[in-house]
């Protein structure tokens, strides 16, 4: 799985960092998403899919 973020669409709500903290974090200043692990291991895939669904800006994609 490959994780892609559209930084423009991110509205800094931080859902992703709560749901999948091993994969996402937020910038200290503006809160914009940081992808920590663009190719997360299988045990994190469900959390990533949760974050993709939860993101209020539709800013995240998980590609197979």
């Amino acid at each position: 799985m490959k994780v892609v973020a559209d930084y423009d669409k991110c509205c800094a709500a931080g859902q992703c960092a709560i749901l999948a903290p091993d994969v996402f974090d937020q910038d200290e200043d503006d809160g914009i998403v940081l992808v920590l692990d663009p190719e997360p291991p299988a045990h994190l895939h469900d959390a990533v899919l949760q974050a993709v669904t939860a993101c209020p800006g539709s800013a995240l994609k998980a590609l197979r």
């Binding site: 709500a13 859902q15 949760q50 669904t53 939860a54 993101c55 209020p56």
Partner: peptide, 10 residues
């Protein structure tokens, strides 16, 4: 609220 829609839907 936009996030509520997502969370409650889930």
């Amino acid at each position: 609220h936009r996030i509520n829609a997502t969370e409650q839907g889930a």
